[in-house]
Design a protein around this nucleic acid. Sequence first.
DNA 1: TTAGGGTTAG
Length: 582
Amino acid sequence: MTAKPPPPPPTTSTLSHHHHHHHTLTSTTSLKLFTTTGKPSPIKSAGNSSASVTTTEATTIQRRNSSDESLLNLLRQRKTEDAWLLYTQSSHLPNPTCLSRLICQLSYQNTPSALTRAQSIVQRLRHERQLHRLDANSLGLLAVAAAKSGDTLYASSILKSMLRSGYLPHVKAWSAVVSRLAASGDDGPKEAVKLFRSVTRTIRRFPDPAMVVNSRPDTAAYNAVLNACANLGWTEKFRQLFDEMPESKCEPDILTYNVMIKLCARIERKDLLVFVLERILEKEIPLCMTTLQSLVASYVGFGDLEAAERIVQAMREGRKDLCKILRESSSDEIPNENENEVFEKLLPNVNYPSDYEPPLLTKVFHPNTRMYTTLMKGYMKSGRITDTVRMLEAMRTQGDSASRPDHVTYTTVVSALVNVGAMDKARQVLTEMIRAGVQPNRVTYNILLKGYCQQLQLDRARDALKEMADSGIEPDAVSYNTLIDGCILVDDSAGALVFFNEMRAKGIAPTKISYTTLMKAFSVSGQPKLANDVFDEMEKDPRVKVDLVAWNMLIEGYSRLGMLDPAKEMVERMKKKGVYPM
DNA sequence: TTAGGGTTAG
């Protein structure tokens, strides 16, 4: 947590430009600080500065030094709140140590307000071209805090600007951001892969290995980027990165293989799932429950409930020959040739002879709540509502504490009932869960909101929103997006706007779905001008990126009314921005 | 939150 001076920048030709630039800035800026006249000072270093300054300047320096000293004291005592107040009370820019420590402590608090404060310091420094005053440690922590709060755009922009300036973030910092990006929607996974590449490229440019020792990717970092590849279905990229792990002295671990299971599911290669399990056992990597969980989830995703049930049943019976059971459930679909080559490298065991005796689990695993809930989701998705409810009953009465229904289980049942329009029964389950001592959460209520909206019962939806607040559950963007969409269903664009404004008034950040849904409300009600206004707001909001859906909604608003000229104009504007219609 | 059971658009 201590503030360190910026790491020595790399010396390769590409980055040396930044290097010199960077250094010039550092020395001149410390001079500027000590200058009150605004004229360039002849002083060359802080060391001999006091000799050549005037008396007034010396007094100013003293005042500033003492202010920095009080700030540093507060920071040392971890009085972050007081430190922040002191910072805001003075127009003087604190020294690099204080600024970095303040950013570190604010980032470490992991609260929205602390993050906003840290960001405001960065914004000020950026504006005053003093960003280099912050060390790599504080910027890295800020990036992690931003990523954790869901602001992955901000987090990756901080990291990118660090890399541009020759700063190398700690592996824990940059990999945390890669991990968040990988799991976030939109372009997140692509950005994760890009970020991973920029970091490793920058690392390679440093001639001295000692300088990059804390920034090199570890297995966790690889797992994060592999997860991004899995989410994208980028098999070849996955293999490349997987292949370079040994060169980077990283061993694949159980998570790496769990991510591989996800990749197989994503690219619809059900036939490969069993080979991943066999490979894990063959490499004697300790198996964990989540691997089996991932397998069941994958089969459920494929709609192969029989295979999922077979695993669960085998586990209930305490069997260890899961591989054998899964081999029996493998279908004989013909896989893609190119993909096969890739997987022969990832999973050499796909080519083992057919009389190969698959390995046994080294330990017995029992199905838990999560696994049963996954199976339940399968029933829900295939419309087997009776089985969903029956499963809940079985879990309640079974008496096994590791598989008792929890809030997600009940929420799944609520969701299943909402999906078939059985709102009264969904309500009953909500009551039942509360009686059983399981508290519904925001997701449970969001599903209920969705149900009332779908039933065009907006008043009931509003009541549910109140009920939510009364139980101490704050609505989020999803709650409001659902309600805005509900207003569209009853042709109430004014109501949609009211919800949108209510959301912003509550400090809930609109997502791009909020913007596009509100645009849709105005578009379908024949108010393209208003849709246009929302679009402009969206462009101004740094938290969201205008995407193709937003452009389409904008264009559609005009086309719907036969206003082809403005529609064409929008298409041109869109092309100029580098977005192309599909 | 190094993955992982439940929710929102088009």
